[in-house]
Nucleic acid binder design. Structure first.
Length: 493
RNA sequence: CGGAGUUUAGCGCAGUUGGUAGCGCGCUACGUUCGGGACGUAGAGGUCGGGCGUUCGAGUCGCCUAACUCCGACCA
């Protein structure tokens, strides 16, 4: 085993360290010079682009359009919605001046004290306020509704503690903001987008998620109801992978957005917002990776198949290239992204390790033996199994294999998630079980204060109130009262 | 913002009681290699995070400062 990989393995006891090293070594991202920000490197960004493209298609299919709103938000906007203020008025970057000047002592530049802004601008932590301020001018009648807008953007939250991909000071995301004439329609939209996220996570990222509703404690500031998808990472911690909020009329009231309904009466608009971020990349990495590096689901891998020639001479390389060319062509025709790595400055063993680290789903290797036998070696990244097969029919095999890998890593993730999900009936058991990580499923009838106490005592929070499975009744894990509410607790990122 | 740790070559690190700066990987050249991160030989690469001090002399001791990482509080 390579030295670097040994280093990775030896750090298993510290998952986040392993994760950071892995992310950097797989060439996805690194910390930038700016506190808590990250540079997403080309290979990492290629994965993000795949995520973006697919999600965007799904948004379009559900009738949404893209728009763009300003990065800067006047401070006063953030004061308009009371709960929103409470949740977002802190931990924001604030622009106070608009000009620099040369330092009088000649050492670089200083902020020009003359150039102070009358009203400070907030670098958006999320765009509800500026968007609702804009929507006010777009909406007069029920005929103007619904508005189904999405924005791809960056946002800034001056977090105390940051973590590559999972919690960076600046992150990329999409935020959908919709306006509706009726409560039912808005609620339906919020739930629809949750389904879109869940489908994307499971079918494309191969990350199983639990759909649910946030408890009051965990709800988005300014929302009436927050829906979420929760994923389970390999270290037993939960990760909120996406949220969809039913905002009621809160923002419409704060920004005075009314419309005339069919009965010629003024009414406040109903709203939703929903978003997923580059945190999805964190989920992807932490859900599937092993000690050899990333494991990418084929549907999101920038390169799905890599072909490595093994040769002793230029003549042999030429002979291999000749055999490989039609395979590359045929794969491309099927829409499979393939890289033939005939670079002469790296050796096959090095390439093998490198592409494993990067999570390429399928590797084909062809050498002298294969030339003689008309075969090719096929390796799948998810199981690391190798197999030598005839060149004939290899393209169809690879296509089938990609589907199988996609399914297999999903199945593995589901099996893992299920294996760390347990039912807990009382708080004493809860306290010992939570130490082992994973989801603890229990009936819950406690108060927000009870939730706070549990968080303080065990570091666990209610990840979500389960949408389904609420048919039966049981006794609350803490209070013993009978309830229908079933929740998932976990420690989370 | 509290607690702990780190900062020395591109990367990962060592550096003893204070005495001219080291190792591994990588990099450059040549040769042998090439089916799981090859090897040999010869090279290049550093104002030791920054500042002030103690000292004949500081990577090493003292004070200040900055950045990063981890653990908390906060959050997607």
């Amino acid at each position: 085993m390579a030295k670097e990989l040994k280093e990775l393995t030896s750090r298993e006891e510290n998952y986040s360290q392993w994760y950071n090293d892995l992310v950097v070594k797989a060439d996805l991202a690194e910390n930038s010079a700016v506190r808590g920000c990250m540079v997403i490197k080309p290979y990492g960004y290629a994965i993000w682009e795949k995520i973006q493209r697919k999600l965007d298609d799904m948004f379009k299919e559900t009738g949404h359009v893209n728009a763009y709103f300003p990065l800067f938000i006047p401070k006063s906007f953030l004061s308009k919605e009371a709960d929103h203020v409470e949740g977002f008025a802190k931990e924001c970057a604030v622009v106070t001046h608009y000009r620099l000047k040369t330092n009088p002592d000649g050492t670089g530049v200083v902020v020009d004290p003359e150039a102070r802004l009358e009203e400070e601008l907030i670098v958006r932590p999320t765009s509800e306020t500026i968007i609702w301020n804009t929507y006010k001018g777009w909406i007069q009648s029920y005929r103007d509704l619904p508005i189904l807008c999405n924005q791809w953007a960056n946002v800034v939250r001056w977090e105390m503690r940051t973590r590559l991909f999972l919690r960076t000071a600046e992150f990329l995301w999409q935020e959908g903001h919709t306006a509706h004439a009726t409560e039912a329609e808005a609620m339906e939209e919020a739930k629809r987008m949750l389904e879109v996220y869940a489908t994307f996570a499971e079918e494309f990222m191969a990350v199983p998620v639990v759909k649910g509703v946030k408890s009051a404690n965990e709800r988005f500031a300014g929302a009436v109801e927050t829906f979420c998808i929760e994923a389970m990472m390999q270290d037993g911690k939960a990760l909120q992978a996406g949220t969809s909020h039913f905002l009621g009329q809160n923002f419409a009231k704060a920004f005075d957005v009314q419309f005339v309904n069919k009965d010629n009466k003024l009414e406040y608009v109903w709203a939703t917002s929903w978003g997923v971020s580059t945190r999805l990349m964190g989920a992807l990495i932490m859900a599937h990776s092993d000690n050899n590096g990333l494991v990418l689901p084929p549907k999101l891998a920038p390169i799905q198949v890599v072909i490595v020639p093994i040769y002793k001479s230029i003549e042999q390389l030429d002979a291999i290239s000749e055999k490989v060319a039609p395979i590359v062509e045929a794969l491309k025709k099927l829409g499979i992204s393939v890289k033939y790595d005939n670079a002469d400055n790296k050796k096959p063993g090095w390439k093998f390790s490198e592409y494993e680290l990067k999570g390429i789903p399928v590797r084909l290797a062809m050498g002298g033996r294969d030339l003689e036998n008309g075969t090719v070696e096929v390796m799948r990244r998810d199981t690391l199994e190798k197999e030598t097969r005839p060149v004939e029919g290899i393209v169809a095999h690879v296509q089938m294999l990609l589907d199988e890998i996609q399914f297999n890593i999903y199945r593995k993730a589901v099996a893992f998630r299920d294996s760390v999900t347990r039912d807990v009936a009382d708080y004493a058991t809860f306290k010992t079980e939570i130490e082992k990580g994973g989801f603890l499923r229990c009936y819950w009838d406690g108060s927000p204060e009870d939730e706070d106490r549990i968080k303080e005592e065990t570091k666990a929070t209610i990840r979500c109130i389960l949408l389904h499975e609420a048919e039966s009744e049981g006794k609350c894990m803490l209070t013993g009262r009978t309830t229908k509410r079933l929740v998932l607790f976990a420690r989370s990122y």
